[in-house]
């Protein structure tokens, strides 16, 4: 055990001194005002349909429950591949996101489809297990075939000022991912202020995150427009400084098509066209898809259909 820790620390040390990046302050009042203002964009007709179809392709369709079964996951994958049976122009979704034990089932269902298999790992959702166990969690999920890993940061370390620990864990998780993409969950609902969110975003990006993600979905509040805006601004500054495009994933609490469009507006007007793609923006959601489908059907038929016309999973 202690050997493992030592060797892990050694690998980090090889990269040189790990000084977490400097960070910028965030003004709470103004960032909330800006996020709210962007929520007032009027998104109608063709814009709405295009936005909702994009949102479907950006979705990480998620099930993260203790009661998940292979059957549930297979059902979710079917929905991921063809969200609307009579309209092939809708979907498929960006990825299916499951616990590690469910990864083989998802891989089996989605093989060759282009839909990614994302797995939460690193002792999700708390992250409060020894690092070797968390890294092993990652390696096994990747071994099962996950090509995207959603890790959690050590929020306790972040809040107590152990920034180097937060940073090192991300670096090592990234190594454990190999070719798999790494999404770093900050769990913004536990970080207490936008300043800490901004700092954690900067640390995660410097440490090698491919995506930064707001929340596990297990903590309230989860994603909000202003916290997403703060993270998008961090991504923008990282891009200005390095030329590297980091992805963004708001997750948790996004349940309606209207909310999804609000997030797309935030991306469009903060980071621009390059980020309006599933490669760089994802929604982590379990119940959002059906509301989006309902709105798409409403635009197509000019009438709302009952919730039971859409499969629950």
């Amino acid at each position: 055990m202690s050997n493992l820790v030592a060797s892990a620390a050694g690998r980090v040390a090889d990269r040189g001194p790990h000084i977490p990046p400097r960070t910028s302050p965030v003004d709470q009042i103004y960032v909330e005002e800006r996020a709210a203002a962007l929520g007032k964009r009027s998104i109608k007709k063709a814009t709405k349909v295009a936005g909702l179809k994009l949102a479907v392709r950006m979705m990480d369709l998620t099930t993260l429950e203790g009661k998940d079964t292979p059957g549930k996951v297979r059902s979710l994958c079917a929905k991921a591949l063809r969200p609307l049976e009579h309209d092939a122009s809708v979907g498929p979704v960006g990825a299916v996101c499951v616990y590690p034990n469910m990864v083989p089932v998802a891989v089996d269902c989605l093989r060759g489809s282009g839909v990614h298999v994302a797995s939460v790992a690193t002792a999700f959702p708390s992250g409060l297990s020894p690092l070797p166990i968390k890294l092993d969690d990652v390696r096994r999920a990747v071994g099962f075939g996950a090509d995207e890993i959603d890790m959690v940061i050590d929020r306790g370390a972040m809040l107590s000022g152990e920034y180097a620990k937060v940073y090192d864990e991300i670096v090592q998780t990234k190594e454990a991912c190999g070719q798999a993409h790494l999404k770093v969950i900050l769990e913004t609902g536990e970080l207490g202020s936008y300043d800490v969110v901004r700092h954690a975003s900067d640390i995660a990006m410097a440490a090698g995150a491919d995506f930064i993600k707001t929340s596990t979905g297990k903590v309230t509040p989860a994603a909000t427009p202003p916290v997403t805006l703060v993270m998008l601004e961090a991504i923008r500054d990282h891009y200005y400084a390095t030329g590297k495009r980091i992805g963004m994933k708001p997750a948790g609490g996004i349940r309606t098509a209207k909310q999804a469009l609000h997030y797309l507006v935030l991306v469009k007007e903060t980071l621009g066209d390059a980020w309006l793609t599933p490669e760089l923006f994802r929604f982590g959601a379990s119940t959002l898809l059906n509301d989006v489908l309902m709105q798409l059907e409403k635009e197509r038929t000019q009438a709302y259909q009952g919730a039971d016309y859409f499969s629950k999973e």
Binding site: S42, K44, R236, Y239, Y240, A241, G272, D273, L276
Partner: peptide, 15 residues
């Protein structure tokens, strides 16, 4: 440095 692009990837219809 790198520049952002604000083009027509997703445009707003007249409202």
């Amino acid at each position: 440095g790198p520049a952002l692009e604000f083009g027509d990837a997703w445009t707003y219809a007249p409202a």
